[in-house]
């Protein structure tokens, strides 16, 4: 049995189901991401795990113990909120120490643990500041430290990085992953950002309209999306209708076809003839729009040098690896 088991969980507001038939699990020390578009029920699911929102059916097992009806104070679960939820009237140190004070931890141990965890999230030196004197990234690290210091059995993170700018988000993401591995923490991380999910997770649970669409490793979801929704959500796929794909690849398909842009080779000596329409620069990758047999495709190529850039109108040949052509429902 896994460390965290969620079985047939459902929740509704009035007659409207928020989510239903939710089954997933997490092993000890695993980082599972709940990924999905806004309003798919992932945040409510997280609140149900924490005990902050009551469930309408199913059960939650943590470390062999059923916690479905246990008060949030006694679940041994900590949570990091999107809004940080730092106590504005307390300093960084008092915020972090709050949970230990509630547990009546001895003063010397409290001091030691708070100092330790502040060092872990690289906040030493800021102990005496108030939340309003900190940047967004620092605030979220205080929130993380406050959750870590109580040594929770399970740590929940509700879109903790979405209010931060891209560079800080990346840095904090790596920091969370490092700490999670160091402490062998079990984490459930909610996000709507597929890049965040792919880079962080051991496993991704992809949700849509209150249901789990696919549950698997990041690699599986990326390379073997179950349907067009997964393909569209998890990566920048070329999604072609069956007849369009048939025209391009010269054979018949019964379903839609998904082709990843980086699996198409441009400089092949033989293959399908095409013409560059335009390009956009995505940092280390150039994304071309190529028209071949009347079908427009995205093709990703590593950005090696400015001289290798193909101008609009250039004639190219496309080679598409057989294993990268996926039929999706």
């Amino acid at each position: 049995m896994s460390f965290l088991n969620v079985e047939r969980l459902h929740k509704r507001y009035g007659a409207n189901p928020v989510f239903s038939e939710i089954d997933f699990s997490a092993s000890r020390g695993e980082l599972v991401t709940l990924l999905g578009p806004s309003g798919c029920g992932k945040s409510t699911l997280l609140r149900c795990l924490a005990g902050l929102t009551p469930i309408d059916g199913g059960r939650i097992m943590l470390d062999g113990e059923e916690i479905s009806n246990v008060a949030p104070q006694r679940r041994g679960i900590a949570m990091v909120f999107q809004s940080y939820a730092l106590f504005p009237n307390m300093t960084v140190r008092d915020n972090v120490a709050f949970g230990l004070r509630m547990q009546r931890t001895r003063k010397d141990e409290l001091e030691r643990r708070v100092t330790e965890v502040l060092a872990l999230v690289e906040l030493d030196g800021l102990e005496a500041r108030y939340p309003h004197q900190l940047s967004g990234g620092q605030r979220q690290r205080v929130a993380l430290a406050r959750s870590l210091v109580v040594r929770p059995r399970l740590l929940l993170l509700d879109e903790p990085l979405s209010a931060l700018d891209a560079r800080i988000r990346r840095h904090l993401r790596e920091q969370i992953r490092r700490i999670q591995r160091e402490l062998e923490l079990t984490m459930v991380f909610v996000t709507h950002d597929q890049e965040e999910a792919l880079s962080l997770s051991d496993r991704i649970v992809l949700m849509r309209e209150g249901k789990i669409v696919q549950n698997g490793s990041a690699e599986t979801l990326y390379t073997a999306p179950k349907d067009a929704f997964v393909a569209g959500f998890i990566g920048h796929y070329n999604l072609l209708d069956a007849d369009v794909a048939g025209r391009l690849l010269d054979r018949s398909f019964s379903n839609r076809v998904a082709i990843r842009p980086e699996s198409i080779q441009l400089d092949a000596s033989q293959g399908i003839a095409g013409e560059i329409v335009d390009h956009s620069l995505l940092g280390n990758v150039i994304r071309y729009r190529v028209k071949a047999r009347g079908v427009e495709l995205s093709v990703d190529v590593l950005n090696r040098s400015a001289s290798s850039l193909l101008a609009p109108g250039s004639q190219v040949r496309l080679a598409i690896a057989e294993e990268s052509i996926r039929e999706v429902a």
Partner: peptide
């Protein structure tokens, strides 16, 4: 953010009364 503050305090082990007293009232 009253609800988030209360939720955070609850998860850290505070009762509703304690959370209201030490987290909401001072603000």
């Amino acid at each position: 953010e009253l609800r988030d503050l209360m939720d955070a305090a609850h998860l850290l082990g505070a009762s509703t009364f304690r959370a209201a007293l030490s987290v909401v009232l001072p603000n």
